[in-house]
Computed example of a mutant assay.
Amino acid sequence: MSATGKSAALTPPDVLARKGGVPLVCLTAYTTPIARLVDPHCDIVLVGDSVGMVLHGLPSTLGVTLDMMILHGQAVRRGVERALLVVDLPFGSYEESPAQAFHSAARVMRETGSAAVKLEGGESMAETIGFLTRRGIPVMAHIGLTPQAVNTFGGYKVQGRGTGGAAIERDAAAVAAAGAFAVVLEKVPDALARRITAQTPIPTIGIGASPACDGQVLVVDDMLGMFSDFRPKFVKRYAELADDAGAAIAAYAEDVRQRRFPGDDHVFADATPASQKVPDA
Rank of each mutant, 00 (worst) to 15 (best):
His41Leu: 07
His41Trp: 08
His41Asn: 05
Ile44Met: 05
Ile44Arg: 04
Ile44Pro: 07
Leu46Asp: 08
Leu46Ile: 08
Leu46Pro: 11
Gly52Asp: 09
Gly52His: 07
Gly52Lys: 06
Gly52Asn: 04
Val54Lys: 06
Val54Ser: 07
Val54His: 08
Val54Pro: 09
Leu55Ile: 04
Leu55Val: 05
Leu55Cys: 09
His56Glu: 12
Gly57Leu: 04
Gly57His: 02
Gly57Gln: 05
Leu58Ile: 11
Leu58Lys: 11
Pro59Gly: 11
Thr61Asn: 07
Thr61Trp: 08
Leu62Thr: 14
Gly63Arg: 01
Gly63Met: 03
Gly63Phe: 02
Val64Cys: 14
Thr65Phe: 01
Leu66Cys: 00
Asp67Phe: 06
Asp67Cys: 02
Met68Asn: 02
Ile70Ala: 01
Ile70Ser: 01
Leu71Lys: 01
Leu71Gly: 00
His72Phe: 01
His72Trp: 01
Gly73Arg: 00
Gly73Asn: 01
Gly73Ser: 02
Gln74Glu: 00
Ala75Asp: 03
Ala75Cys: 06
Val76Tyr: 03
Val76Pro: 00
Arg77His: 03
Arg77Ile: 00
Val80Ile: 07
Val80Glu: 03
Val80Ser: 00
Ala83Gln: 03
Leu84Val: 05
Val86Asp: 04
Val87Asn: 07
Asp88Met: 06
Leu89Cys: 07
Leu89Trp: 10
Phe91Asp: 10
Glu96Trp: 08
Ser97Phe: 05
Pro98Ala: 12
Pro98Gly: 08
Ala99Phe: 13
Gln100Lys: 10
Phe102Leu: 11
Phe102Tyr: 11
Ser104Leu: 11
Ala106Asn: 09
Ala106Tyr: 03
Arg107Gly: 00
Val108Tyr: 08
Val108Thr: 10
Met109His: 02
Arg110Met: 04
Val117Phe: 09
Lys118Pro: 09
Glu120Lys: 10
Gly121Gln: 12
Glu123Asn: 13
Ser124Arg: 15
Ser124Pro: 00
Met125Asn: 10
Ala126Trp: 09
Ala126Glu: 09
Glu127Met: 13
Glu127Pro: 02
Thr128Asn: 10
Ile129Tyr: 13
Gly130Thr: 13
Gly130Trp: 12
Leu132Lys: 13
Arg135Asn: 14
Ile137Leu: 15
Ile137Thr: 14
Pro138Gly: 14
Met140Gln: 14
Met140Phe: 13
Ala141Gln: 12
His142Asn: 11
Ile143Arg: 02
Gly144Lys: 01
Leu145Val: 04
Thr146Val: 14
Thr146Gln: 13
Thr146Ser: 15
Pro147Thr: 12
Pro147Val: 03
Pro147Phe: 01
Gln148Val: 03
Gln148His: 13
Val150Glu: 10
Val150Tyr: 04
Asn151Asp: 15
Thr152Gln: 13
Thr152Ile: 15
Phe153Tyr: 15
Gly154Tyr: 03
Gly155Met: 06
Tyr156Ala: 15
Tyr156Met: 12
Gln159Thr: 02
Gln159Phe: 02
Gly160Phe: 00
Gly160Asn: 05
Gly160Gln: 02
Arg161Cys: 12
Thr163Glu: 13
Gly164Ala: 14
Gly165Asn: 06
Ala166Trp: 11
Glu169Met: 07
Arg170Asn: 04
Arg170Glu: 01
Ala172Leu: 14
Ala173Leu: 05
Ala173Cys: 03
Ala173Thr: 01
Val175Met: 15
Ala178Leu: 10
Ala178His: 07
Gly179Arg: 05
Phe181Pro: 09
Ala182Gly: 10
